[in-house]
């Protein structure tokens, strides 16, 4: 499905706004998971501002699409979006990491509106997303017959009640549990589960594939029985197209994996060069200054 230029340019503008919000967070906290957050911006922008079925006024809407951020240390990007959607007040941006703030250091379902999964310990998100996807299958099974008879059969067959999205980091795929969940999703034919891997090639100790080889990555997911595709994770048109494609494949009985090739610290030259994982102090201020010059002030 081709999207018009207008949508893409709108999303690009939104991505810049999200970046500005992220800089506000970093500027106030003087610390943050800079690299992983910047590599994620386009993906979450496309999800929240175009693709996901959500209602910012009612974050607990039972039929909303679930987004499980398994790499929960990069929650800065989600917080920036939730503020832009009006879920959280704008003042909270400057309270990240602080005592009493709704923006916890790692995403917390209990604390923050609009967060579906409390993460932090890596590798568990895909299992949780699989659980949510399985619950959707149960719920569809249990829909009262009166309701389904009113609805044409193809609607329930081609549209799930909700979809379950998961965002994994690449270093996270060293965890064995990711592959346990991958097997599980294939076994229960969770075609409403869409997994996006933010493949930014670097983890904290160095290049991901030197820390522990995860290549051949695509073949791994394929051999686990997933539908797999690769995209450029900073090209909004590709992201939007592939998300639509993966959603429209619902009904094929296969979980979907989108491997998004990204750059750690995307957009900020010093973070890109140093492959910054956690930035502190001067490292953060320098990046924020550069980012504000490039993407504009709030």
């Amino acid at each position: 499905m081709a999207h018009d230029e207008k949508l893409i340019s709108e999303l690009e503008e939104k991505a810049d706004i999200v970046r500005r919000n992220i800089f506000t967070i970093f500027d106030a906290s003087q610390m943050g998971h800079a690299g992983g957050t910047m590599s994620l911006v386009e993906i979450v922008t496309a999800l929240y501002f175009h693709h996901l079925k959500i209602d910012p006024k009612n974050c607990d809407w039972p039929e909303r699409d679930r987004l499980v951020l398994s790499k929960a240390h990069c929650c800065e990007a989600i917080y920036a979006i939730l503020v832009e959607l009006g879920v959280l007040p704008r003042e909270t941006l400057t309270t990240y990491y602080r005592y009493g703030s709704p923006l916890q250091g790692h995403a917390d379902r209990w604390c923050t509106q609009g967060i579906d999964y409390s993460g932090g310990s890596l590798g568990q998100g895909l299992s949780f997303a699989a659980g949510l996807a399985l619950a959707e299958k149960f719920k569809v099974l249990r829909q009262p017959p009166s309701q389904s008879s009113l609805m044409p059969r193809y609607i329930t067959r081609y549209n799930p009640l909700y979809r379950s999205y998961c965002i994994l980091g690449d270093g996270e795929c060293h965890e064995g549990q990711v592959w346990e969940a991958a097997m599980f999703a294939t076994k229960y034919k969770l075609d409403n589960l869409i997994n996006i891997v933010d493949y930014n090639k670097f983890s904290l100790d160095g290049p991901t594939n030197e820390v522990m080889q995860i290549e051949p990555f695509v073949d791994k997911w394929k051999s686990f029985g997933w539908w797999v595709t690769e995209i450029d994770g900073h090209n909004l048109r590709e992201i939007v197209d592939v998300l639509d494609l993966a959603s429209n494949l619902y009904g094929d009985g296969k979980p979907k994996c989108i491997i998004a090739h990204t750059v750690k610290g995307h957009g900020i030259s010093s973070w890109e060069a140093a492959h910054t994982h956690i930035g502190r102090g001067e490292d953060i201020s320098r990046g924020v200054r550069e980012g504000r010059a490039k993407y504009g002030e709030v």
């Binding site: 005592y99 709704p102 379902r109 209990w110 604390c111 509106q113």
Partner: peptide, 8 residues
């Protein structure tokens, strides 16, 4: 006690 405890 847990601040901003949204669920409960």
């Amino acid at each position: 006690r847990r601040l901003y405890m949204r669920a409960i």
